[in-house]
């Protein structure tokens, strides 16, 4: 079948229109009549940073905070490719190094929170998991993050530090995928960040274990020199590191960074 010319034109126009409006729509409306500060932040910070963003807007009338939540490494690449961002909060130091290495950081990146792994089990804990060593039990269906992503790297560190060899049935791409499998009862246990368990509410149960201190993940933040509102970016960084910011993070299960 040969599509008619008008149909093809329409299709192209629709595609272009959707693409253009999708790119610029929200930012443009939010910016109307004020300034906008753009923050790129790791996906694990979505809940806390959204709250802090509202607080920032309250103390800076006329300023809107726009977030881009994604994997830290993906965000770092977007920034080095020239994405306009005023501040960058990374869930690990490696991704931050990418940005700093490109000379885009305004100053030194500062740690603002830590995150440790915890065991997530279904609410009824069918496999009766109690300790980290339990996770190596034969027949137990354990789901972890893939080593390529930060939570997986932390898992690997823990295995090496404790000498416990885990045999997961799946290495997921993201913490959310691990949680989903635990929540559905597919997995008997999963290794996720403590903050993820708190965010998941009653749908999963968290089991803290002392060995977790041997793989501490440090969240770091910096204002970006190339951003259109770099100054406001620095002010957001300050808010995160303030007592108010630290309280919001602690409520969500983050540890204090030193």
């Amino acid at each position: 079948m040969r599509p008619s010319l008008p149909a093809a034109v329409t299709a192209v126009l629709v595609t272009v229109t959707v693409a253009v409006s999708g790119c610029s729509g929200p930012a443009a409306t939010r910016a109307a009549g004020g300034t906008t500060v753009t923050v790129f932040a790791a996906a694990s910070l979505k809940a806390t940073f959204t709250r802090l963003g509202r607080a920032f807007e309250a103390s800076h009338p006329g300023t809107a905070v726009v977030f881009n939540f994604a994997g830290s490494q993906a965000l770092a690449e977007q920034i080095t490719q020239g994405a306009p961002a005023d501040a960058f909060a990374s869930a690990n130091e490696a991704s931050m190094a990418t940005v700093a290495g490109a000379g885009l950081a305004a100053g030194r990146a500062r740690p603002f929170a830590t995150n440790t792994l915890t065991i997530a089990v279904p609410p009824d804990n069918p496999a009766a998991v109690a300790t980290f060593a339990d996770l190596a039990r034969p027949g137990l269906k354990l789901v972890v993050c893939a080593p390529a992503v930060p939570c997986g790297a932390a898992t690997l560190t823990l295995e090496e530090a404790t000498g416990v060899t885990l045999a997961p049935v799946s290495e997921e791409q993201a913490v959310t995928d691990v949680l989903a499998k635990v929540r559905a009862g597919e997995a008997d246990a999963g290794l996720v960040y403590a903050t993820d368990v708190i965010a998941a509410g009653d749908s999963v149960r968290g089991i803290a274990f002392p060995e977790s201190s041997r793989a501490v993940n440090r969240n770091v933040i910096v204002a970006l020199s190339g951003g259109p509102q770099s100054g406001l970016g620095q002010e957001f960084v300050d808010l995160v590191r303030s007592a108010e910011g630290q309280q919001v993070l602690a409520d969500a299960g983050f540890g204090t960074a030193t």
Binding site: A74, V149, E171, Q173
Partner: peptide, 25 residues
């Protein structure tokens, strides 16, 4: 990725591998 999980040689098919490698390689 939703249903089967992701483990090398068992459930990690080519598209899953591509998605994962996109992060570190």
């Amino acid at each position: 990725i939703t249903f089967a999980g992701s483990l090398q040689g068992v459930t990690r098919t080519l598209p899953l591998e591509i998605y994962l490698r996109q992060v570190d390689d």
